[in-house]
Design a binder for these strands. Structure first.
Lengths: 142, 142
DNA sequence: ATCTGTGCAAAGTCTTTGCATTGCG
DNA sequence: CGCAATGCAAAGACTTTGCACAGAT
């Protein structure tokens, strides 16, 4: 049960914090190999998962893409640009615990939490779209 | 641009409607092979994706699991049991378009829609948990 | 000294794709 | 008939795992 405090484990935590913006396992691995080339990808995956289980990191599963890891533990929502795929936190928008209670009532689940992923076209892609054309921005389903 | 109305395409639509409860591509494939054993998995994937693009089916990406396909087009939310993995629609809880507007305002995205996945322990698993013990139900992160 | 964590590579899961062929329109 | 769709199998993206060994406690 007790987790050993290995160098690799520390490096994984440090990398996720350093990369900050929802790195994938691959990105964490790449970052670590810069200073510690001998780590294996399996170890990165094992540590990421173990840290998530311990509650030290969050895991965000992204539609059509690798899972991402999050050093911010406070509940928050995410937004994905359907045009460029960029994935970010939604700032200035509070987690709504109310919804858990309401859904618990209608479903009889013992509610834990909820994840929201907003989909839309980011300001940068909107500009690009305007230049190219007024085309079908925002018709993607994911 | 025009989609051909192939037998395989019809079978895929029919299977998703028949299976109703968010089948995976694999489940759709299995269902179809019962009556039409010669369809290939690649074709099932190609048709599912093409139907999603055409807006005839919905695609739901499930945390730690294969994508699921949905014949219900009206916006709705999903709930996943952290204990048995069951994945369902949330009934009796309306889609909240308001949130898109609010998030559009704070992010400047041209908002499209949002997906919510609730996580909790379903009534059945709660019963099991009670019998076994009062243990750590609901501590999973996904 | 113990026994978890590591490195490595192989395998597993889910999905896409190249290519020759089929069959819808 | 022409070209999009199919079947098949191979490959691709992401992740887990078996095993022998290393290193934290």
């Amino acid at each position: 049960m007790a987790k050993r405090n290995t160098i690799q484990r520390q490096l994984v935590i440090a990398a996720v914090r350093f990369l900050a913006d929802h790195p994938t396992a691959e990105e964490v691995y790449d970052r670590i190999t810069m200073e510690y080339p001998d780590i294996s990808k399996g170890t990165v995956y094992r540590n990421l998962n173990s840290l998530v289980e311990s509650g030290l990191l969050g895991k965000v599963s992204v539609p059509s893409g690798a899972d991402r890891f999050d050093h911010i533990l406070a509940r928050h929502y995410h937004i994905k640009c359907t045009h460029c795929g960029k994935f970010m936190n939604v700032e200035n928008f509070e987690y709504i615990p109310d919804m858990d209670e309401k859904v618990a009532k209608v479903t009889n689940y013992k509610m834990n939490h909820h994840d929201i992923v907003f989909s839309g076209v980011c300001p940068e892609c909107q500009k690009l779209g305007d230049e190219v054309n007024g085309e079908e921005l925002g018709n993607d389903f994911n």
